[in-house]
Nucleic acid binder design. Structure first.
Lengths: 134, 134
DNA sequence: TTGCTCCTCACGTCACGTGAGGTGGC
DNA sequence: TTGCTCCTCACGTCACGTGAGGTGGC
């Protein structure tokens, strides 16, 4: 049976390939105080634990949700701080609503573009000499 | 009855406010060869026509769909080229297929994001003190 | 020794934001 | 004259990309 607190360590490229980003991205997040290695080897090689891995996951999810790194940082700090700061949570809800509207617009854009692509393809096929209509 | 080719002119801030961007953004697109004013006043004030307005609309839609400005530019040029060049048309068809696949992936991404937003909102609402579970 | 991964600068890039300093028409 | 919008530089910002030059362990 696997232990619950196995807590294995990851190299920077372990995490990079797991989340499909570059090591540079992880180092950048570190320089922006969003992330820290559990420990360093003699020469400086970074070793990350489960805690850092989860933070990275949260950062990347924030990115997908359209948050800036600064926003993600304070959101994560909100998670970790067992604050009962209602004001902050309200702001979070507003941000979520905003980003949901963004997604709504994106879906409309995609629908429109797909129709245009259909029409364009038809036009092109008809314009093609020797075309047998697909 | 409104004329079909009314073709009114817009100032830079007309377009900016219509599409909720800044004049600086429009000037930047011009410097990147994506857009051009129909005419200039003596002092340099830009006047845009319907053609420029449509191009701006396409650029912004491309942005929302995740295209770079360079990509949007060549897409628009492809749309406008009424080339009877079979080779070009073939390339066009290939590009359409590519972008259709991209859109497919994007739609999946959006579906996932919406679920994450739902989950995030629920988590926050539950974390809110005095919450009545809405 | 070769090949691989790791490291730290540090400049480059993309898509604008943001003043600074100035002109033109109601 | 004041207020408004327009203009052109040009440096700043955000989130990294991309070498340059070097170290460390199998």
């Amino acid at each position: 049976m696997p232990l619950k607190n196995q807590s294995r360590l990851y190299t920077i490229s372990d995490l990079a390939s797991e989340f499909d980003i570059t090591p540079r991205t992880i180092r950048f997040y570190e320089s922006e105080q969003l992330l820290e290695p559990e420990s360093r080897e003699s020469h400086g090689t970074r070793h990350y634990g489960e805690r850092a891995r989860v933070r990275l996951k949260l950062i990347l999810r924030g990115k997908r949700l359209g948050f800036s790194l600064a926003e993600s940082k304070s959101l994560i700090e909100l998670y970790n701080a067992d604050s009962d700061n209602t004001e902050q949570l309200q702001r979070f809800l507003e941000l979520i609503t905003q980003h949901r509207q963004q997604l709504q617009r994106q879906k409309q854009d995609i629908a429109v573009l797909e129709q245009e692509l259909d029409a364009a393809e038809q036009r092109v096929r008809q314009a093609m000499p020797g075309s047998t209509a697909n």
